[in-house]
């Protein structure tokens, strides 16, 4: 436990901790860290991992329907990546002391949140294209910023995730362009999907700074290097021109670029709706958790069967008093 009350050298350690971050150094799992830093990081990385694992579901439902070999393999690979990102992120949070079993059970019990965009249905094949392009595009904006943060295991995971996301973005953009240059029906399907996903994408970056409990300490500690509004602006600056380039219209009459303040102006979403959704009342919130709970239950016999063999435990005991020959010359 390291709080001002319980640790006489708290101030000194905090100064060294903050100096290290200011120098651009990373914090490793067994470095000293304030409890608040640990708590905020566990909450944030836990939610990020949940979002990856739940995020696999809307696109996952479309895998059996993918219409060509390339799309079919790519969609399996993309959803697989998201499960892999969940794995790496749960691991990053585990290094802060929270076991994966706990994190998964809290998610399944609705006690730990995940990104609201996955509480929306993927109604058509064009939804899969928009998700892969704009939701993954938003995720990359967020992850690239978080990768400049201070906690080393999270940054190492993000480095790998960002590399894999580069495929997601190109794959999504390729799908969107294919629909945009396709038949009238394909173009309409694409525009219709964009109309449904635009508000969730704006909400993806979280409530505006004036609403969110974003503190200066989180920025100084490298837990959250940029605010929600800053990230949203980076997304809009990059993607609005590209969307318009494809001949699509963005379903927000107020969307315009404010030259003077160098920022995109948009219709403020209904943030009460946002908070209601992340509390579990989105159109597909219950459905997503139900699918994840079913998968978890149906897999229990597999987890328990191989846990029973417990070979790993025997290996650990035998490890220290082992023969002198090296297995890995």
């Amino acid at each position: 436990m390291s709080t001002p009350q319980t640790d006489p050298r708290y101030e000194e350690k905090l100064a060294e901790f903050e100096a290290r971050i200011a120098r651009g150094e990373k914090i490793e799992p067994d470095d000293w860290m304030p409890d608040e830093y640990r708590r905020q990081l566990i909450r944030l990385i836990h939610q990020h991992a949940n979002s990856e694992v739940i995020g696999a579901l809307p696109e996952g439902t479309w895998i059996p329907y993918a219409p060509t070999f390339k799309r079919k393999k790519a969609l399996v690979a993309k959803v697989q990546d998201e499960v892999g990102h969940g794995l790496m992120l749960y691991r990053a949070a585990e290094t802060l002391g929270k076991p994966r079993e706990e994190m998964i059970e809290e998610m399944l019990a609705g006690k730990s949140k995940w990104s609201l965009v996955f509480a929306y249905p993927a109604e058509t094949w064009a939804d899969v294209a928009i998700i892969a392009w704009l939701i993954d595009g938003g995720a990359i904006v967020n992850q690239t910023i978080m990768a400049t943060g201070s906690y080393a295991p999270y940054c190492r995971a993000l480095k790998r995730i960002i590399y894999e996301e580069s495929f997601h973005l190109k794959h999504g953009f390729d799908m969107v362009v294919t629909l945009a240059e396709g038949t009238k029906r394909q173009r309409d399907m694409l525009q219709d999907a964009l109309n449904r996903w635009w508000e969730p994408i704006i909400m993806f970056f979280g409530p505006p700074d004036k609403l969110s409990v974003h503190t200066e300490t989180l920025r100084r500690w490298g837990v959250k290097p940029k605010t929600n509004d800053e990230q949203r602006q980076i997304f809009l600056r990059k993607f609005v021109p590209q969307i318009l380039d494809l001949g699509l219209t963005i379903p927000d009459p107020n969307l315009r670029y404010d030259e003077e303040n160098d920022r995109w102006v948009y219709t403020e979403p209904d943030w009460d709706k946002f908070f209601d959704i992340i509390r579990g009342n989105g159109p597909m919130s219950k459905e997503r958790l139900a699918v994840r709970r079913l998968a978890h239950e149906e897999g229990r016999w597999v987890r328990e069967a191989l846990e029973a063999t417990g070979i790993a435990r025997q290996l650990r005991e035998a490890a220290v008093a082992a023969p002198t020959s090296s297995v890995v010359a």
Partner: peptide, 24 residues
Amino acid sequence: SYREAYGYRVAERVRHLRGEEKHG
């Protein structure tokens, strides 16, 4: 290559699309 960014060539098609878009 379907699961790598380099497996997708899109830029040229977007330019073409933009060109077409004026009278599309």
